[in-house]
Write a protein that binds this DNA or RNA. Structure first.
Lengths: 224, 224
DNA sequence: GTCCCCTTTGACCGTTTTTTGACCATTCCC
DNA sequence: GGGAATGGTCAAAAAACGGTCAAAGGGGAC
């Protein structure tokens, strides 16, 4: 069953919600301040309830930090109700607003709706490998094939990492360009062609094979 | 860019929202009653704004019908505000509530949040299958029949996907052409004939049957 | 500033896909 | 049965696309 993280400075509230959600069949994690919340992130919650009015913490900033680590739904618990706040909150990476006081019934319904929409389970490791011995260390930005290192430039590595972390999935050049260079980037996605070529040359030289497959008329994908 | 369908009986409101969302870079479809909405579903909107208080229509039932056809986010536009309504609405397959009157700013923010979320879940592979072993992997753009892969070109795959996601429904060539190439396309819908032929040849070669049925004088439909 | 490497651009070529138009086959209706 | 309308087939032309290369453009290290 889904794992829900509850972040609120009032212990009574986290306990109450925790109890209720457990009764509903969910697994729960509770945190009463920002550091605790961040510490719990590696437990990979499937949904986060976040009080953005915790004393001593900028809830929105915390939300942004959390969002940069996980992709699960984030629901705000808040007393603020102005429309401006809602817009800002959603901009900071939140997915929904629930204003205090709220009923457990509505809360549960919203949680269920969001979980229904987001039945993914994502695990991210810092080292990616292929069955035949290619090892990509993301944190060190280095690539090895059976103990021989392959050097990639920065852009090349980003493209490689992107395709590899989404192995099997096809992306058109536009999409790769956006995901790697950022949405607001303006350049021509034609550069991807060249990066792909460079990556392929280097891989072929060492691995004697080419992990990147071309799907004609569509894009590229990693196939190991 | 994402395609948003707006369903409301007030033409003025649909026009206004349509204009605004187009300004925001979205593609829009508008419908002023339930039948029109259902007719547009095959266009596969990425998000639906639905007025559940349209006269002569049970909005919730419409929502449920829509939900049984598509999986995209459905946002309610409504004047109702009781908490009971919210729970019921979410139960009927809705994803969010926006109560009238609302600001365009909040609406846009919520739409963006839901689409962002959907894109995340969209990275999960959605797979269509037939009872006898045809497997169409939409995210990888690959088709298998009992572990044997069948290769399709881009257009061919789009037509195949369209018919399969709307299996059992008949579409004339004009309609297929519009849905696949876009409304503003100018070419001759006669090309569909040729694409259908190519698809059939490839399917017959491997599956030894032909899932695409010709309805004489009308069009084609997927029959598995 | 100079050098070097990375990144981007634009052009070219061969290949694949997409479209077109002509022609044949089938169905429908009188 | 015969004619008109609709659907199927085919091959060739047209367009789109991907791979490649060389050269220009940028940015950091020294």
């Amino acid at each position: 069953m889904a794992r829900i993280m509850i972040v609120d400075d009032e212990t009574m509230l986290t306990d109450l919600l925790s109890q209720h959600l457990q009764d509903c069949g969910y697994e729960t994690l509770t945190a009463n301040d920002a550091p605790a919340a961040l510490k719990l992130l590696p437990r990979n919650p499937d949904l986060i309830l976040l009080d953005i009015n915790m004393p001593g913490t900028d809830g929105l900033e915390l939300c942004r930090t959390i969002r940069s680590h996980v992709s699960c739904p984030i629901l705000f618990l808040t007393a603020r109700i102005t429309e401006q706040d809602k817009v800002i909150g959603l901009d900071y990476g939140g997915d929904d607003y629930i204003t205090k006081p709220f009923s457990l019934k509505e809360l549960t319904a919203r949680i269920a709706a969001h979980l229904r929409r987001d039945q993914r389970t994502l695990t991210r490791s810092s080292v990616l490998t292929t069955p035949d011995g290619l090892v990509v260390n993301l944190s060190e930005r280095r690539v090895f094939y059976r103990d021989q290192e392959i050097l990639f430039s920065r852009r090349e590595f980003i493209v490689l990492e992107f395709l590899l972390t989404n192995r099997g999935r096809v992306f058109d050049r536009e999409r790769i360009y956006e995901c790697v260079w950022g949405l607001e980037a303006e350049g021509d996605s034609g550069v991807i062609k060249e990066h792909i070529r460079k990556i392929r040359v280097k891989l072929r030289e060492v691995c004697e094979r080419d992990y990147i497959e071309t799907i004609w008329g569509v894009g590229y994908k990693w196939a190991d």
